[in-house]
Design a protein around this nucleic acid. Structure first.
Lengths: 126, 126
DNA sequence: ATATGTACCCTGCGTACTAAGGGTACATAG
DNA sequence: CTATGTACCCTTAGTACGCAGGGTACATAT
């Protein structure tokens, strides 16, 4: 599995990393159970910050593409193939688009939507 | 109808203005058909910018609390009482809270929600 | 000429977020 | 002692938005 990070790309580094790991899974370049480099190792190889790699790993684990086993390292998830094909962001977008579209159709301004959104995100639900 | 604007208040000026006009409607201090001051006149009286008053009027008209009749001026809407009792922002908040709560419950991070939200608001639905 | 709502240009200030990095520390298990 | 993931602390740069104001202009109708 060869990973290439382009720091000039507008795509965030952690996203580039996630995308390439998922791509490697889909292309059978890595298979369930295979070990991945440690966070620190990969960060060193790619000249990235530990936190950037850790972020990508954390999200990939949430999406069940990889599995971290504490001090034993990180491995490809048994269901990695199926889960790598999921486009979570597209799903989020569709859900939000539906709600926001309904608000806009009701004459609510974008400004009002943004303010209400900010309140919800900060748990100030009033 | 007496309107008092507190520029020290954290509540936005146009919101204070909207609130007080709606309150005057609910208290029967103004009635459907009554004329309101012109935008420029009210801005001058309250020492506000024309655009601030215009913004409040625009939103109040959208909410059918007032009616603007072009060069003839602005008047209280026939259904002003009922429409002044509506809390649009609470309704927006409830709609968004439902969608966002579902996303959060699915493990989506706030960061991801915010980014997707930004894309939807900018009609970059991809 | 005057007054109406409305639309557009521009500014400034405050706020809040993402992305990314630097550093330190911890419990775990070998 | 070493390596694992993880959790904090901090900073920096870039971006985007709300609110408010200043100014100019327009078609409308009296």
């Amino acid at each position: 599995m060869e990973i290439i990070i382009d720091i000039e790309d507008t795509v965030p580094l952690f996203t580039q990393l996630m995308d390439q790991i998922k791509k490697a899974v889909l292309n059978d370049q890595v298979r369930p159970g295979d070990a991945l480099p440690s966070i620190r190792q990969l960060a060193s190889d790619l000249e990235l910050n530990n936190k950037t790699v850790a972020k990508a790993y954390r999200l990939l684990e949430r999406d069940s593409v990889i599995q971290t086993k504490g001090y034993r390292g990180t491995f490809i998830h048994p269901d990695a193939r199926a889960n790598s094909a999921n486009d979570l962001n597209a799903w989020i977008l569709a859900r939000l688009d539906k709600t926001i579209g309904a608000l806009r159709d009701s004459g609510v301004t974008d400004s009002e939507i943004r303010i209400a959104f900010g309140n919800v995100m900060n748990n100030r639900n009033y």
